[in-house]
Amino acid sequence: MKVVSVVGARPQFVKAFPVSRVLRERHEEVLVHTGQHYSESMSDVFFEELDIPTPEYNLGVGSGTQGEQTGRIVTRFGELVEREEPDAVVVYGDTNSTLASAVVTAKTDARLAHVEAGLRSYNREMPEEVNRELTDHVSDLLFAPTRRGVENLRKEGVGNVHLTGDVMYDAIRWARSRAAEHSTVLAANDLADGEYVLATVHRAGNTDDPDRLAAIMGALCELDREVVFPIHPRTMECLDEYGLRERVESSMTLIDPVGYLDFVRLLDGAERVATDSGGVQKEAFFLDTHCVTLREETEWVETIDAGWNVLVGADREAITRELTAPVSLPEKPELYGDGDAAERMVDLIERDAGSTDGSDG
């Protein structure tokens, strides 16, 4: 069986490596990097750290508007699928790469599997919400990480849904111990476990709004403890544009974007994290780190219900309150499976394709 796997952004690299390892043991995998995140610090380093094989294809789509980026992927991925003639295509998450590849695949004979299906924030102003909804509705196999995801899809009338657990849990179990042994990021930045707040801010809804970004940065700058901020290039550009850079640089510890293992070590060692990332919310849960989410909604509602995550949006007072209040976390429930999601997903792809013996064809 030939399977084409599509990745294009940091969280997808992390989700892909456990699945790719299982696929390559049993079948022919063709790994496609769309180039949606194209700098070495944002992409190549993840392949190296996670021991993911060099992608057979890099579509090199680069940045651009939602329409431009999606259109370039449709064109280039369409040509690739026609040439490779895969039996199945696997897409991850909710990026433009995911939607564009799904649209192309839906018009071919290849079976389409969506990893991380069924997530909903119910905010269609987020491009990711539109991407995940449309991808779910054209997919043949839907791998939901949570029971809520399964229920969301049932309500929408979507079939062939499977509760697999979360493949990011597979990844984080491996990465946590490896990062503890090999990462030097804490020592390099003179940091100690439990003595800093980690911050990540990159979503356009925050970075492209001067008032929201000023409120978030204002709250972070006023904390009485060290704030470590691996800064996204787009966020730095916005700090310059809005005149916020000088204050941020003088109040926080700014570092360049880090690789996956270094980020896991930073998140594992943080006293708590402030983020607008979907993936970081879940990684924080896996690593027992309290999360303060700089958004008004989340697709990971289970972490909110469990008391391990709190939504504060760009409310300066709420951000300050949640980053300074004593941390008192309840017992952590098992929400995302047992760390064997990748095996389940490949088993389901095989069953769907009628190839349970692991042979090609």
Results as ranks from 00 to 15, higher is better:
residue 229 F to A: 08
residue 24 R to L: 15
residue 294 L to S: 06
residue 277 S to Y: 08
residue 361 G to D: 10
residue 229 F to D: 02
residue 254 L to K: 08
residue 245 R to Q: 12
residue 31 L to W: 06
residue 89 V to F: 00
residue 17 F to C: 12
residue 235 T to A: 08
residue 141 L to D: 00
residue 168 M to N: 03
residue 121 S to T: 03
residue 20 S to N: 04
residue 45 V to M: 15
residue 291 C to R: 06
residue 297 E to W: 04
residue 20 S to C: 10
residue 289 T to S: 15
residue 350 E to C: 01
residue 31 L to F: 02
residue 76 R to H: 01
residue 192 A to V: 03
residue 330 P to I: 11
residue 333 P to N: 10
residue 275 T to M: 07
residue 54 T to C: 05
residue 151 E to S: 12
residue 179 A to Y: 02
residue 280 V to R: 13
residue 132 R to L: 01
residue 149 G to T: 01
residue 86 P to Q: 07
residue 241 E to I: 10
residue 288 D to F: 11
residue 339 G to C: 12
residue 327 V to H: 09
residue 39 S to M: 04
residue 260 Y to T: 02
residue 43 S to C: 12
residue 305 D to E: 15
residue 29 E to R: 06
residue 321 R to G: 00
residue 263 F to M: 15
residue 2 K to T: 11
residue 76 R to T: 03
residue 313 G to C: 07
residue 192 A to Q: 14
residue 96 N to P: 05
residue 314 A to S: 11
residue 208 D to G: 13
residue 155 K to C: 04
residue 114 H to I: 07
residue 199 A to F: 01
residue 2 K to V: 06
residue 98 T to E: 08
residue 203 R to S: 08
residue 335 L to H: 05
residue 260 Y to V: 06
residue 315 D to K: 00
residue 134 L to C: 06
residue 223 L to P: 05
residue 1 M to Q: 12
residue 117 A to I: 03
residue 305 D to Q: 09
residue 255 I to D: 14
residue 54 T to Q: 10
residue 227 V to E: 03
residue 67 G to H: 11
residue 344 R to P: 00
residue 15 K to A: 03
residue 210 P to T: 05
residue 308 W to S: 07
residue 274 A to H: 03
residue 283 E to P: 00
residue 311 L to I: 06
residue 116 E to L: 10
residue 330 P to Y: 14
residue 222 E to W: 03
residue 344 R to H: 15
residue 306 A to R: 12
residue 186 L to K: 09
residue 124 R to H: 03
residue 159 G to T: 11
residue 217 M to L: 09
residue 9 A to D: 01
residue 198 L to G: 08
residue 305 D to T: 02
residue 114 H to V: 09
residue 132 R to A: 04
residue 286 F to L: 12
residue 17 F to V: 08
residue 78 G to F: 03
residue 252 M to N: 01
residue 66 Q to M: 01
residue 227 V to M: 05
residue 78 G to D: 05
residue 114 H to A: 12
residue 209 D to P: 04
residue 65 T to V: 03
residue 29 E to Q: 09
residue 30 V to Y: 12
residue 170 D to C: 13
residue 43 S to I: 01
residue 26 R to C: 13
residue 200 T to A: 13
residue 134 L to Y: 06
residue 205 G to A: 15
residue 186 L to V: 02
residue 267 L to M: 13
residue 169 Y to M: 15
residue 302 E to Y: 02
residue 152 N to T: 01
residue 184 T to H: 13
residue 112 L to G: 08
residue 67 G to N: 10
residue 103 V to D: 11
residue 265 R to A: 11
residue 133 E to F: 06
residue 232 H to C: 08
residue 357 D to L: 05
residue 220 L to M: 08
residue 154 R to G: 11
residue 353 A to V: 10
residue 178 R to P: 02
residue 183 S to W: 07
